[in-house]
Amino acid sequence: MDTLIAIGREAWHILVDSSVYMIFGLLVGGLVKVFVRPGFVAQHLGRGRFLSVFKAALLGVPLPLCSCGVMPAAASLRRQGANRGAVTSFLISTPESGVDSIAITYALMDPLMTVARPLAAVSTAFVAGALENLSEREGQAPIKPDLSCPVDGCCDGVDCPPEVHAAHHGFGQKVLAGARYAFGELWAELAGLFLLGVLLAGVITALLPAELLSSYLGGGLASMLIMLAVGIPLYICATSSTPIAAALILKGVSPGAALVFLLAGPATNVASLTMMTGLLGKRATAIYLAAIAVMSVLLGLALDAVYVWLAINPQAVMGQASEIMPQWLRLAGVAALLALSVKPLWLSLRSRLSGAGGRTCADDSCACHDHGHGAAKGLVGIEVHDHAAGGHGHKHN
């Protein structure tokens, strides 16, 4: 009983520290969805071996999609004419980062890790995408950007000129639509995984001895390789991986080893790699995996060197940003997150208990199927099923 109380206490502290930043990240993610035109995303990813890759890496950073949810969006981009390198870059930078995960990184870690994480994601994505384009010989299809309304699909953007469509939705309507997406569909995707991550972080903080972790994961190449082996097959999103990484650092794991986990975990898992093979082929998937493995280890070693060079004790600075928020505001954030989580968690539990059709998630809370489609439709204007990687997706304008 004492053990369970200790785990619950540590998990509660992590949840309190991260709640306000989580809500902020969700809201920004929702605003990105409605204010960034999907045609703008698609039309910049088809030309140039390097510039398109760099743009794809940058555009993927703020988008809050997991490694499964990003697949339908990537399939849509590919069919619209994005080159393989740009798609590969998008597939790496998007799940490795996101405004929600950046915000919670600042809350639970420190400013250096907050900056290093998206920079590492962009660097890894660019290297992988550039290598893919350099090895690509086939001609690229012209881009056919989707211009449909990202707020409610009221027009296709072709028969309705932008100056006319601009009058359809005011600023307030867009903000409300973004908030509905953020605290509805987006949080439904993340709620279960995030809360599980908080619980696992509580287990690590309460039970694992610091001496054990610091002995094996305190820094160096061996630490990076161990975290790489743990992260690659694991399904975990960028947001839920953050409290786990923070707990590991507090127990003596080096920031570089934690960065390897934060890069490899969200970007790779068996399900997403299978879909990627169908979308881009075996060669692209091999380049994708190799780039993530090599770059995450190199960047992890570099980050540890930066901490040493700046004489920063990571255990001493972890989570200081959360202390800026008053306690009442943090508790209000926890209450809001838990209230928003009731419906998606209940639907997910009900679906698992009923075993409807062998599915593993509810219609309103599926992180890898229905919500991935919704995210794809919101980002690029096309709803794509996972088997679209094989060319049999359905398009809805």
Rank of each mutant, 00 (worst) to 15 (best):
315 Q>P: 10
310 L>E: 13
357 G>K: 09
290 A>Y: 03
116 A>T: 11
32 V>Q: 08
9 R>F: 12
137 R>G: 15
5 I>L: 15
328 W>K: 10
263 L>D: 01
311 A>F: 12
309 W>N: 09
210 A>I: 00
200 L>M: 14
45 L>I: 00
143 I>N: 02
308 V>E: 12
167 A>L: 12
15 L>E: 02
286 A>I: 14
313 N>Q: 14
89 S>W: 03
396 H>T: 12
143 I>G: 02
366 C>I: 06
352 R>C: 06
17 D>S: 13
281 G>I: 12
60 G>F: 09
113 M>C: 08
186 L>R: 04
215 S>C: 04
275 M>S: 12
153 G>R: 14
274 T>F: 15
58 L>S: 07
266 P>F: 10
95 P>K: 03
303 L>F: 08
339 A>N: 06
163 E>L: 11
72 P>M: 09
270 V>I: 15
373 H>Y: 13
84 R>N: 12
225 L>Y: 02
70 V>S: 00
123 S>F: 06
231 G>I: 01
309 W>P: 10
193 L>Y: 15
111 P>D: 08
337 L>V: 02
342 V>Y: 04
18 S>A: 15
308 V>C: 09
352 R>P: 08
258 A>I: 05
345 L>E: 02
388 A>Y: 05
192 G>S: 14
41 V>I: 15
54 F>K: 00
366 C>R: 03
25 G>F: 00
184 G>I: 06
194 F>D: 02
47 R>E: 06
175 V>I: 15
217 L>E: 01
29 G>Y: 04
28 V>A: 10
83 N>H: 14
374 G>T: 10
247 A>T: 00
326 P>D: 05
348 S>G: 13
67 S>P: 12
382 I>K: 12
274 T>I: 13
96 E>A: 15
175 V>G: 13
260 V>R: 00
322 S>V: 01
370 D>A: 10
314 P>T: 07
369 H>M: 07
275 M>L: 15
326 P>V: 00
382 I>M: 14
344 P>Q: 05
178 G>Y: 01
72 P>A: 10
381 G>A: 03
22 M>T: 15
241 S>R: 00
371 H>F: 14
360 T>F: 15
357 G>F: 10
269 N>I: 04
268 T>M: 14
130 A>S: 09
371 H>Y: 15
309 W>G: 09
92 I>S: 05
86 A>F: 09
312 I>E: 03
310 L>Q: 10
166 A>M: 08
384 V>Q: 08
102 I>C: 11
159 D>T: 13
93 S>G: 15
174 K>P: 13
361 C>T: 03
234 L>H: 03
359 R>M: 14
67 S>I: 01
312 I>R: 04
329 L>I: 04
311 A>C: 10
39 G>Q: 01
140 Q>T: 10
385 H>T: 13
192 G>Y: 09
196 L>E: 03
89 S>M: 05
167 A>D: 14
161 P>C: 08
386 D>V: 14
18 S>I: 02
82 A>L: 07
98 G>R: 01
205 T>F: 01
19 S>C: 08
88 T>H: 02
213 L>E: 01
78 R>A: 07
209 P>C: 08
